[in-house]
């Protein structure tokens, strides 16, 4: 037993874990930065909403659907040249960020749109009736009211990103996925495979718990 544990390349696992966390944090940050405004815009331009713009909505919606229907592994490959232009390399932690964001942001935007649609129309109307501007309605009423839903959406997204980061390891993104492929697949070192899976599982558990806690914290219903 002790030998088994000793045979596991712990320093490498530590490094890979750190890489995964960095990928996750940076890609989630950009997913939020891009996906949140996109989701809000998607909601606002929708049918019978505050800034109804059917053409704009349809275009955005179509692009989001395309991006969401591409399997992530394909997106990784297709994105490589683009990533090289943006970052300078399509490898390593840095190179994995653009495909992760492009994969996750449309998904998150759609979930944000859904969360905003859950807000009672009456609340928007009451705020309108107070003489609020559109900006005040969005930031004063819509987003605060949808916050628990938006946090839940972010939780689902970040967990999806965990599996995306693992997958991006396959094409040289680094992190735990990369480790699992190198040791587990190429060298048949199943113990390393198990350790990476357990670590990913713990990460997902932790993120879900954190998300649920925050949702509860912001729910006043």
């Amino acid at each position: 037993m002790m030998e088994l544990i000793a045979a596991i390349p712990w320093p490498e696992i530590g490094e890979a874990s750190l890489d995964t966390l960095v990928m996750l944090a940076v890609s989630m940050l950009f997913t939020l930065i891009l996906g949140l405004p996109l989701g809000i815009l998607l909601f606002l331009t929708g049918k019978r909403q505050l800034m109804e713009q059917t053409a704009v909505y349809n275009v955005m919606s179509f692009v989001i659907n395309i991006l969401r229907s591409v399997p992530f592994i394909i997106l990784l490959i297709v994105m490589m040249p683009v990533t090289e232009i943006i970052i300078g390399t399509s490898l390593g932690v840095q190179g994995s960020i653009p495909p992760l964001v492009v994969g996750a942001a449309p998904f998150f935007a759609r979930l944000v749109e859904t969360a905003l649609r859950e807000v009672d129309r009456g609340i928007i109307e009451a705020t309108q009736a107070m003489g609020a501007s559109k900006r005040q309605i969005v930031f004063g009423a819509l987003i605060p009211e949808a916050l628990p839903g938006i946090i839940a959406a972010a939780t689902v997204t970040v967990i999806a990103l965990v599996s995306y980061t693992a997958l991006s390891g396959v094409i040289g993104g680094g992190g735990l996925g990369d480790l699992a492929v190198r040791y587990g697949y190429h060298r048949h070192q199943n113990d390393v495979l198990v350790v990476t899976v357990v670590l990913l599982l713990l990460l997902v558990q932790f993120l879900q718990m954190l998300g649920d806690k925050l949702v509860l914290r912001f729910s006043r219903r």
Binding site: I123, E125, A126, R220, R221
Partner: peptide, 13 residues
């Protein structure tokens, strides 16, 4: 012009 509603429409947050 103030307004009140059947379902109150208060902000739950």
């Amino acid at each position: 012009v103030g307004m009140i509603f059947q379902h109150f429409n208060l902000l739950s947050s």
